[in-house]
Write a protein that binds this DNA or RNA. Structure first.
Lengths: 185, 185
DNA sequence: CCTCAGGGAGAACGATCGGTCTTTCTGTCT
DNA sequence: AGACAGAAAGACCGATCGTTCTCCCTGAGG
């Protein structure tokens, strides 16, 4: 195994992430995935028992990247700036070139069963982000950190969809101002 | 045509609305639709040239019902109550038994092409709701009705997804309190 | 009475779905 | 040298996708 090359498994995951996000999960078939990833069907099923396992892996990897970005943005900052920075990561994402809404909300729309593997990954990610917000709100001395975090989650979810369906720059500015309104300096 | 019976076209639309919302659009095939609606394939394609036309009809009908409900809730109320009532309709919806998020946001997740027929119905609905909020915020004397309406849309979108993925009652209460925070009595 | 549209029943279309299989080859380890 | 895992290539499976077709029956309007 030449470690310099990209492993088929990684190519597959990268391709899946791109296609699932851009076109929807049910809309992308296995044929499409293996062709664009330059991987055979056998290799696909050697690494992922079913397509849903690949979907779960796609969301898990997305979650990992977001946690990395948010942690980096918060690092070393006092609570107020850390909170603003965490939500700024969200706002910035909405303005990306190929932004197409929240990976997790989009996936949830295609996976109705709350007990499915995919939904578990989604729930994990949402719980993590809520905890971040709750922690910062508490550290900031907010009288009701739970309520504050819940409102921020509403704003985040709304921003992630509004960024696709409405004007992204406006949504980012709206989100920033709304956060400031809730946490005046 | 015995006007007392339900026309096949209406049965089809009602069945489609139920299944598309509960299970996702791509996940429900034509076979499923015609079987559960007790309609033949020929009848299906006689009324809707393609499946996407049925999807658009489903969203258009949903939009019509929501406009009806929101208009009824606002009727005759002063701006402040009217605005709260309009958003209460949203909050109440999240607590329904078979709530599974926003029909429009879910559909958008499955229709990436912004120019598609389905996306146009979605955009229409969103523009309508935004106008409602902007109008009421202006009537209420809010200094920046556009910004206020944008924030409320964020909260609405967030609530419609949080209601499915998190606890619905909590989300409803959070939405109500957030609206009060933005529009103190 | 006749026409004709609308609906029911179901076969059939090519394409694609998710998933399994065999075969061959290459590279890495012991 | 020999063993073995991983990957390429592609045939193949039954099922389902969205769509079109023919045939027959019924019921309302002229």
């Amino acid at each position: 195994m030449t470690s310099a090359e990209v492993h088929p498994k990684d190519r597959l995951l990268a391709t899946a992430s791109r296609l699932f996000y851009a076109e929807g999960i049910h809309a992308v078939g296995v044929e499409r995935l293996v062709t664009e990833a330059a991987v055979t069907r056998a290799t696909f099923y050697r690494h992922y028992p079913t397509k849903d396992d690949l979907v779960a892996a796609y969301l898990a990897e997305t979650s990992r990247q977001i946690r990395e970005a948010v942690d980096a943005a918060r690092a070393g900052k006092p609570p107020r700036e850390a909170l603003a920075a965490a939500l700024a990561v969200v706002g910035d994402a909405t303005c990306g070139d190929d932004f197409r809404g929240c990976q997790f909300l989009n996936a949830a729309a295609e996976y109705p069963d709350p007990g499915s593997q995919v939904r578990q990954v989604i729930d994990d990610h949402r719980k993590w982000f809520f905890e971040i917000l709750r922690t910062e709100a508490a550290a900031l001395g907010h009288p009701e950190p739970n309520h504050a975090a819940r409102v921020l989650v509403l704003l985040r979810d709304g921003a992630l969809h509004g960024g696709e369906l409405d004007d992204a720059e406006t949504v980012r500015a709206t989100l920033r101002r709304a956060v400031e309104d809730f946490f005046p300096a």
